[in-house]
Design a protein around this nucleic acid. Sequence first.
DNA 1: CCGCTTAACCTGTCTGGACAAGTTGAAGTA
DNA 2: TACTTCAACTTGTCCAGACAGGTTAAGCGG
Lengths: 253, 253
Amino acid sequence: MSVSARYQTIAAELRAAIDRGEYPIGSVLPSEGELVARHGVARGTVRQAIALLEQEGVVATRQGARRTVLGSVPTQSFSEMQSFSMWAVSQGHVPTAEVLHAEMRAATLTDSERLSTPVGEEVLDLQRLRLLDGAPAMVERTLYADLVAQHVLAMDLTRGSITERLTELGFVYAHADHRIDAVAAGVAEARLLGVRRGSPLLRQRRVTTSPAGVTLEWSDDRYRADAVTINVRNSMSANNLARLSARNPARAV
Amino acid sequence: MSVSARYQTIAAELRAAIDRGEYPIGSVLPSEGELVARHGVARGTVRQAIALLEQEGVVATRQGARRTVLGSVPTQSFSEMQSFSMWAVSQGHVPTAEVLHAEMRAATLTDSERLSTPVGEEVLDLQRLRLLDGAPAMVERTLYADLVAQHVLAMDLTRGSITERLTELGFVYAHADHRIDAVAAGVAEARLLGVRRGSPLLRQRRVTTSPAGVTLEWSDDRYRADAVTINVRNSMSANNLARLSARNPARAV
DNA sequence: CCGCTTAACCTGTCTGGACAAGTTGAAGTA
DNA sequence: TACTTCAACTTGTCCAGACAGGTTAAGCGG
């Protein structure tokens, strides 16, 4: 991060300029030629930089015409989407947790499907109530693969980010699959979250994978409806959003 | 589409090979060098092809190591995410609609904020009940900008895809912003969808933009919780997912 | 047998050039 | 005035080559 590639530096500069309002929403970006001249790099490098902004949905491209600014993204990193704690801190909130259940066990059939791990391997089943500034916001259940389970068990599970500490230990999260729907609060969830039974909850189920494709964790998060909104931006070129029929789920688990 | 670029052809071939199981999940992709030799193209072209697969989350990359197959995406096009009808058809369902309300009016302050259009411009406010194989699945409210409103009004609004017909007329959808949360069914929604009042609904609010950055439509869709799931895949490199605090929404509307 | 070094391999970054294809506004025409 | 044509500009695609930096497995030494 400290020694970024040239194209990342250029992308960061453009992003900052957009945030500063130098290129307002609806205005056009400098042409590739101008950026080449300004930074003294080859055109390919400039195009690499701009490709990042396109993936983020910050700018729109039309062949032949200058690029248009669509808006600035509230710089959320992958980590902030992965970790409730890191997200909360970045929003200026104080996240805490109460451990409801923590159990190390041999993987059942269900566990093994969720984690893509052999039946019988050790897994950690962790259930926590997550609080935002002291107020209940989410009930979370996470299954950790053997690879990371021991490290997680050794941590203080009531404060700080598990993800962040795993990252410090050298575990890298690379990909995540999210499945989002709405469910009614059960008796236990209603009591924990301080809502009425049957209240709508936003459920996010997630599978996270390392760069090598190894599944590291599976989780089921249920948010109070008034606590969070999930935001997705997609474009014709970069699309990773899908709507699944609940009766016929493509990637069940 | 018929005259694809070389890199798109190569990407499509790799995608197909993965779907065929030629490169199973967890296996490695051929190296760039092999693909260069096989297709007789420059390395940059191969890298362009692979970049598509990376954006789709189909493969994972680590510098120095061969790329790993993460899984095949249920080939959902941008259009299928944009249009309930097109999605339903692609899933083998029959989508229909009942018009609840259709009104052409001068944009109120709220309308103008939602569509990023001047107050007083003509907008079309359309509310419909959407059915899947005859069963109520979603209540939809859409605001169309002046540019497309007249065309929409001239259509049969009970069957077929509005989006598809607008596309045929030359309107291009390029970007979309989605905000997803859970809400309780109101009295009217409950009756229309055939659920109890207070039942959880999955709400998806969307703003769609043309390649030039012009807002074409705004919509608020509320799904029966048992009808659909929204699926998102993100990676450390390509990330357009955000979690917003509901009390402090970044991009309100 | 185990651990270390190293060479082969593979992906990341960058250069410079060429031509294709779409957009836009100015100049010219009816 | 209204329309058409065209040249300048801008982005899309592709090539060939170079070097940096991470990964992996074979081979060597203890």
